[in-house]
């Protein structure tokens, strides 16, 4: 699929944060995070709601003043050089904020004018971006007539109007149907293959596993761990999981423990993490009326282990 360029990782990181903090009167949103984002990669911030992902992104863009620590983007200090930095970044916000007073094409033209891009250069780019977003046929349509997926594609296209080196996406596929989500993933992969650095926040594990070269898992304003999806999985959880659905969970928990598994319960489901699934599988086959699923461990297992299973609001 993709060839990772090892020489680029030797370059200076695109974003560097040291001890970055954001305190509000009532709570601490970001509590001293450290990270380096290498050029040309897709870097993910994974975390439950309220983990501090969006606040971290807003600080990178110079839109939220930090309460402490240091931050630089393209080697330029933030927020001092935020304007220069934003001229080189594309931003895809969490909620669509397309201009409802304009058509699709006009949205792109107006946005280009905010960057001071001359109309002739902009028109050439807009033709390309409409292709990229598969919206060429709809160019004259009002934004309110677009589906959620089309709006997202337009927002991503709009974020590319200044030919950015870095694109920051805050939950790019939240609320989209699976088809629309796959199209967006395809477009983001295309961008990364062209050498654009991507930063995204998500709480979709599948999205993080598919897109991110590296990611950090955040919770309550702190970074719990970082690495590639594979590294994180092998570091934190056993490679295989057997999920069992049953009312008689206590007996099964004992069975799982006996078979050498680490067992977690969630409602009427048991998650048995193990390196050697065979003993438990053999036992389960003798049980009647049980539903169970055997699968490789994924990022979701890491995520739940690190951030806990209780509900977040």
């Amino acid at each position: 699929m993709r060839v990772s360029d090892t020489s680029s990782s030797a370059q200076e990181p695109v974003v560097t944060a040291h001890g970055l903090k954001k305190h509000y009167a009532s709570h601490v949103a970001v509590d001293g995070v450290e990270f380096d984002i290498p050029r040309g990669q897709c870097f993910g911030f994974l975390g439950p709601n309220g983990a501090g992902k969006t606040t971290t992104l807003r600080m990178i863009l110079g839109l939220t003043p930090s309460s402490g620590g240091s931050l630089s983007v393209f080697g330029l200090e933030i927020p001092k050089h935020a304007r220069e930095v934003r001229a080189r970044i594309g931003i895809v916000p969490q909620a669509d904020n397309l201009d409802p007073d304009f058509s699709i094409e006009e949205n792109l033209q107006i946005y280009a004018s905010y960057f001071g891009i001359p109309a002739r250069v902009a028109d050439e780019r807009i033709a390309r971006l409409l292709e990229f977003a598969s919206l060429t046929d709809r160019r004259g349509a009002k934004t309110e007539t677009l589906s959620g997926g089309m709006k997202r594609r337009l927002t991503i296209g709009r974020a590319l109007i200044n030919d950015p080196e870095l694109v920051v996406l805050d939950e790019p596929t939240t609320g989209l149907d699976p088809q629309a989500r796959h199209v967006i993933w395809g477009r983001l992969n295309e961008l990364r293959d062209k050498g654009v650095t991507l930063i995204l926040t998500t709480h979709y594990m599948e999205e993080a596993e598919r897109l991110c070269d590296q990611l950090v898992i955040m919770d309550q304003g702190r970074i719990l761990d970082c690495g590639t999806p594979r590294e994180l999985i092998s570091k934190h959880v056993e490679p295989e999981v057997i999920e069992v659905r049953s009312e008689a969970s206590q007996r099964l928990q004992a069975m799982g423990n006996e078979a050498g598994c680490r067992v977690e319960t969630m409602g009427s489901s048991l998650y048995c993490y193990t390196r050697d699934p065979d003993p438990l599988l053999a036992k389960l086959k003798n049980e009647h009326g049980l539903t169970f699923m055997h699968r490789p461990a994924g990022l979701e297992d890491v995520f739940l282990k690190l951030t806990g299973r209780e509900l977040r609001d």
């Binding site: 863009l61 839109l63 304007r83 934003r86 909620a95 397309l98 201009d99 905010y114 200044n162």
Partner: peptide
């Protein structure tokens, strides 16, 4: 409601 400024502030404008 329209969040137009949010979109504009994501560019070099302040």
């Amino acid at each position: 409601p329209q969040r137009t400024y949010e979109a504009i502030l994501a560019t070099p404008l302040e």
